[in-house]
Design a protein around this nucleic acid. Structure first.
Lengths: 337, 337
DNA sequence: GGATCTTTATGAAACGTTTCAACCGTCTGG
DNA sequence: CCAGACGGTTGAAACGTTTCATAAAGATCC
């Protein structure tokens, strides 16, 4: 049952193991005749190269790790697609891990990736400050921060300006005449959440129109959390209720939208809604969702390229911080007829 | 820069490498005093176990592969979540691969997984007949077919009865009075597509009401393909145009819905729509989508458990074929007021 | 026809673990 | 007081590759 090794292939083809290895790695260095012989021995035995042995001896793998906050969020799957495309073009394989916004889980995956000796790691961390990640970098595994701004000098990062995104969303709502605005999102350890809120808060104060930004903290950025936030909102006294909600992402907004509609509140008439990410489903929602658009696939692609660059250049590499600009997309959920 | 090995840890702790290995694998077999000593040597050196070496020597990894047709499809991410949960509970790690409905790509991933010597593979194959997959099974890697029925005796499978699902959808549309019905989906190599169509076709013929089921073949089961199918539909003569479309999945249906709405056709009045999968976004769509619900996470969970079982039992394992029943969910997209 | 290169193949030494037979004290029961 | 068991530790072999110095056999040149 055990898969044939290079040794058995060598025996069948009457060559040394070194030659078999050469056929695998530098086929041009072996004469056509023997190459043919080795190749047919391989297929006769159903040889499959043992990546563990190869990695152990050569000291390098062909794998990179990608750790995202939520695989079920279309934003991240689009990002993952970008990463995968770039990796594939360089003959790299991506191990996709889902931290599910859970610290310990994230840590387990990081440990595993380091034990696997992946060539590098792309990560959207659960917490901005992460000593464990720091250690991994110190031990020599390149890490690129994904969708997360940083000024740290020991890594690259690719992000979209979330503070600006938050500002755009809030300015739009203010322009629509809203004064009691809420920001929904959480947990507050996630930098995207705090950045978006910060941008919105700044816009609200600067407007000097007596507007306020209250906080609806959610346990996660999911559809379910959105529905739950909707319940909370419905419990508050209508006279003091916010007239507009800016959600930290589209999933949250879609969940909120569904809960509000189910309970008879109309969007945008009773409550205006703005999301974030502009996932495909935002435009297709019951009430098409205004949202802050990010270049999702591009984000992943650039992050992967940065990592590949760092892997290639190693010591001579200079870390870079790429920041994209978000774009506000107006749809029905935030403009009263 | 190189990460410390077990040997250096042993040296620092003044023990043999065997003892260090024991601390790692059978800590109860080593005295508390030395264990402590070894542990602190490890943290001092920043030791990280080399999984390649471990896998090579022990002959087993702690990884399973999951190959899906489309990571951006919420159906598959939900399935993946189920798989991951079950795997995690058994200390296994999942390598998630996205074939993107592309044969060669699928093949590359399968090769990689086999080279990695994963303990087993969960796959929703691009084509039902797959000689390469067959070889992998023959060489001894357990494979479980995911969301794909089979009667093959050399593997387990977990699926939802797609023929029944197709039938439910068609029967519903027939009951609503539709006679010119279309089935949208593709490519036809994917068994889910053909099964769903077959079920629908059977229902249509059995009804004996002079109804017909035309085919709108799409290149993939994506949002974009749905929009494209919408264009096609709009080009056909309104008098001969189908009055209802049953889409092979929800993404397709949502794309179609968006295109139709954008071009001024009303759903369900001008064209009724039924999807498949009942992803979260189906209920939240502009026109809430009728759909065929599948137990997504459960599907993944059971598949993973079957695989784990097979990995455990090995030779004594008896393959099983689990089939779930789908459920039709009626919403506005298919019932005229 | 010898010297010098090239081309091709070889054999053995790593890589970092796990595994296991063997060993050494110390304890236990008779 | 001895035989045997037991808890703890050791040392070396093995896993399947890659890598590299070396060798053998032709080819090329003067």
């Amino acid at each position: 049952m055990a898969i044939a090794s290079i040794k058995e292939v060598a025996q069948l083809a009457s060559v040394s193991v070194g030659t078999v290895s050469n056929v695998l790695n530098r086929p041009e260095a072996v004469s056509p005749a023997t190459r043919e012989r080795v190749l047919s021995a391989m297929s006769e035995l159903g040889f499959v190269r043992n990546e563990s042995a190869r990695a152990l001896r050569s000291g390098r793998t062909r794998t990179m790790g990608l750790v995202v906050l939520d695989v079920t969020n279309p934003f991240f799957t689009d990002v993952a697609k970008g990463v995968e495309g770039a990796a594939d073009a360089s003959g790299m394989i991506v191990t996709l891990c889902n931290s599910d916004q859970d610290g310990p889980r994230e840590r387990r995956y990081l440990d595993h990736l380091e034990e696997q000796r992946v060539q590098g790691i792309l990560i959207t961390p659960v917490e901005a400050r992460n000593p464990h990640l720091e250690q991994i970098i110190d031990r020599g595994t390149p890490v690129v921060l994904l969708d997360c701004r940083t000024t740290k000098r020991n890594r690259c990062s690719v992000a979209v300006d979330d503070v600006l995104g938050g500002r755009l969303a809030a300015e739009h709502l203010l322009a629509q005449g809203h004064r009691r605005i809420a920001f929904a999102g959480g947990p507050m350890t996630i930098s995207q959440v705090t950045d978006r809120r910060r941008g919105a808060a700044a816009a609200v104060t600067e407007a000097e129109v007596g507007a306020s930004l209250t906080l609806i903290e959610t346990p996660s950025l999911s559809f379910a959390s959105g529905r739950h936030a909707g319940e909370q909102l419905l419990e508050t006294d209508p006279s003091r209720r916010p007239t507009a909600v800016f959600c930290a992402n589209d999933l949250l907004a879609l969940g909120l939208l569904q809960e509000l509609s189910a309970r008879g509140l109309r969007v945008p008439d009773d409550i205006a809604l703005v999301g974030y990410d502009d996932i495909d489903y935002a435009a297709a929602a019951a009430v098409p969702l205004s949202s802050v658009r990010q270049p999702r696939e591009e984000l992943g692609k650039v992050a992967a390229q940065l990592l590949l660059e760092e892997i290639d250049e190693r010591d001579s590499h200079r870390h870079r911080h790429v920041v994209f600009e978000p774009e506000f997309v107006v749809r029905e959920s935030s403009v009263r007829a």
